[in-house]
Design a protein around this nucleic acid. Structure first.
Length: 651
RNA sequence: GCCACCGUGGCUCAGUCGGUAGAGCAGCUGAUUCGUAAUCAGCAGGUCGGGGGUCCGAAUCCCUCCGGUGGCUCCA
């Protein structure tokens, strides 16, 4: 048979007899290295030990390549399961996939809960098994034989029954005494997986359903080399320093008092400056994009929440209370209040879109295990907005909102890792949704059109739409690599309908029509957004956001008066400035200021005082000596106005 | 809500086999006024998340509740 070798560097052809193993073929081509973990034959990833049956194109898969890493980690998961089954004979491995983000793998296993010591033990066992270097063999078995082989493991049996067609066969992989139902491919033997680490455990539910058996999930990761593993672990350690909860305390931005209100953040004066700057920024955008600001109360009688459907669909997340024998609810969303304002008069088709925005604080009971710092809280302020539009306006309205999203995330904050998600309805389950097929299709097309027109990459999540309409979400990752939803643009065919608020506008034929509602939030919530940008900037905020923009330091007591003069000049010009005129040494003052991540330090000593100049040192230790205070102020004013992410003055 | 881990002064941590708490930073006071990442000395501050139990005696063991962290589930 004729085999062509295809690698990045070269292309070669040779003849082999049928049934030759991939590993031998690659060897003959001189294309096998210590880091070759598998092969690709005619587009299919295969084990190195696989016999080749005919003509085709082959290439080696290196453990440094994406495919190779995937295989390596998958084998890591098997090694983990092997270790667990050796240590705990009653354990029943269920599934062990590779994860991309974070890079690694996990294995779900039905067994007794594990503690940290057990994890160490398992890791040691894995190391031992890796050193023993078991061959990893693929075997092909019929469906019946597979079911028979795994008869003591009901989860595997279920998976086999589901995934292998009747009469067909599938593969198992064997390493030592451990056999797993698996499509493969895998590395040739266990010592290929030598740079690995187990990271954590948790529970997971069988098939992800809370009512099912709970399984122990063990997370781990593996890399081609020890160095790569160490680099990764060092990186994750570094990332932890950016954690907004840690920085929030260090920089004195917010506090939590869980004994009085779990997941109810309180913002300090500094944290409130950040919030207010964000609000100010969004107010500019609202004005620019035609959103009128309104204000609505934080609680209503449940009659409103009944009408809006929240009592029916969201009650378990609401804070309810009884006052004078009447039931009230804290608002979990702002939309019903906005609707009440929409209803205050009648609208012509020419008036639409009507756009209401509000920095609306909402209260939601979130289950105790799900809250997290500022990223998932129970009281949160949304930069909320509701547009009431005609069907023909959906696309342009959504387009405008996407432009707002771009202004915020890309142009201003330069957050590159944004994920756009388009959630559509489950086409197999249409009765779950409200609204006609026609409006769903029209709306979904409009959302796609708006995204496409802007060349935004997005994932379509079929079946993830809310029952009341399709939506676009924007997710951003935090320091620990978790994605959180920030912006959202949701269409709503529900609240305006005749069974709820029965909203109307008068069309060009003088007929009443039901408007479509668009719920939107760009930051999402100030709370979550703040959490994300604390981590994004690692606490080193650009001057426009920074709670303290400048700190004045005097060299010694003799320069205190001049320092105070500089300080008050800054304050008079509206710069957020502090003075550190304590008895500390200048070294100490600089060190302290560094810890507070203040963008600019103004240092004044005898030289500066005598010539009425200042010296400026920025957060990155760039310095400019003996400049004019007014020049400095003019420059920082420009940076603030531009929302410049860079510090330019000392460059 | 589920599983694991954790909960000591404002912050970061130490507290060995159970014998009624230690440190650094921050704070305060005093001395020093010193040119660019921690001047020196002193003082004050906690009963160890809450409750219950075991014990002569518990921060240290047990139970329970409340919180936090990582996942899972959830996020009309």
């Amino acid at each position: 048979m004729l085999i062509r070798l295809q690698t990045k560097e070269m292309q070669k052809e040779m003849n082999f007899e049928k049934g030759k193993k991939a590993i031998d073929i690659l060897k003959s081509f001189g294309s096998l290295t210590a880091t070759t973990v598998a092969a690709k034959f005619n587009g299919e990833l295969i084990d190195l030990e696989r016999e080749i049956g005919g003509d085709g194109e082959i290439s080696p898969i290196d453990s440094n390549s994406p495919d190779g890493l995937h295989i390596l980690r998958h084998s890591g998961a098997h090694l983990l399961a092997q270790a667990v089954t050796e240590l705990y004979p009653n354990a029943k491995p269920v599934i062990g996939p590779v994860t991309e983000d974070p890079p690694g793998f996990y294995y779900d296993i039905r067994m007794e809960a594990l503690n940290e010591g057990d994890i160490t033990k398992i890791e040691e066992k894995m190391r031992e098994l890796a050193h023993k270097n078991y061959k990893i063999d693929r075997r092909e078995l019929s469906k019946n034989d597979l079911v028979e082989l795994f008869r003591s493991n009901p989860y595997k049996v279920e998976l086999i029954r589901e995934n292998v067609p009747d009469g067909a066969s599938s593969s198992v992989y064997v390493q030592g005494d451990f056999t797993d139902f698996c499509r493969g491919p895998h590395v040739p033997s266990t010592n290929y997986v030598n740079a690995f680490k187990l990271l954590s455990t948790s529970t997971a539910y069988w098939r992800g359903k809370e009512e099912n058996d709970s399984l122990v999930r063990i997370y781990g990761t593996a890399f081609p080399t020890m160095d790569a593993l160490k680099d990764y672990l060092r990186m994750t350690e570094e990332a932890k320093k950016r954690d907004h909860r840690k920085l929030g305390t260090e920089l004195d931005l917010f506090v939590m008092r869980p004994e009085y209100g779990p997941a109810f953040p309180l913002y300090t004066p500094k944290g409130t400056i950040l919030r207010n700057e964000l609000i100010g920024f969004m107010k500019e955008l609202n004005k620019k994009y035609g959103w009128e600001e309104i204000w609505t109360p934080h609680a209503f009688k449940t009659t409103l929440w009944q009408k809006s459907g929240h009592m029916a669909h969201y009650q378990e997340n609401m804070f309810l209370m009884e006052i004078e024998k009447e039931q009230y609810g804290m608002k979990p969303m702002n939309c019903p209040g906005h609707i009440l304002l929409f209803q205050r008069k009648s609208w012509s088709y020419r008036d639409l879109p009507i756009r209401f925005s509000e920095f609306g604080t909402v209260y939601r009971y979130e289950r105790s295990g799900v809250t997290s710092g500022l990223l998932r809280v129970r009281s949160m302020t949304q930069d909320d907005g509701h547009a009431f539009v005609r069907a023909d306006q959906i696309e342009s309205e959504v387009g405008n909102l996407l432009d707002m999203v771009t202004e915020v995330f890309i142009n201003t904050f330069r957050i590159s890792e944004v994920k756009y998600k388009l959630s559509t309805r489950d086409e197999k389950n249409k009765e779950k949704y409200t609204g006609s097929t026609e409006i769903w299709e029209r709306a979904t097309t409009a959302l796609k059109g708006a995204l496409d027109k802007r060349n935004l990459n997005y994932d379509v999540k079929e079946g993830e739409a809310a029952f009341y309409g399709p939506k676009i979400d924007v997710d951003v990752r935090d320091a620990l690599g978790r994605y959180w939803q920030l912006s959202t643009i949701q269409l709503d065919f529900f609240m305006a309908d005749k069974d709820h608020f029965d909203l109307k506008y008068i069309d060009e034929n003088n007929q009443p029509q039901q408007p479509i509602m668009i719920h939107r939030a760009i930051f999402g919530t100030l709370d979550r957004f703040l959490g994300v940008i604390i981590e994004h900037f690692a606490g080193s905020f650009p001057p426009w956001l920074s709670p303290v923009q400048v700190r004045v330091l005097n060299i010694s007591e003799g320069n205190k008066a001049y320092g105070e003069e500089v300080h008050s000049n800054l304050l008079n010009r509206g710069i957020r400035a502090e003075g550190d005129f304590s008895g500390d040494t200048i070294n100490k003052k600089i060190r302290t200021a560094h810890g507070s991540k203040i963008p600019y330090l103004i240092i004044v000593g005898d030289k500066e005082a005598s010539e009425k100049k200042i010296s400026v040192r920025d957060r990155k230790d760039k310095q400019k000596n003996m400049i004019d205070l007014n020049v400095f102020i003019e420059n920082i004013e420009i940076e603030i106005k531009r929302k410049d992410p860079e510090l330019n003055i000392c460059k």
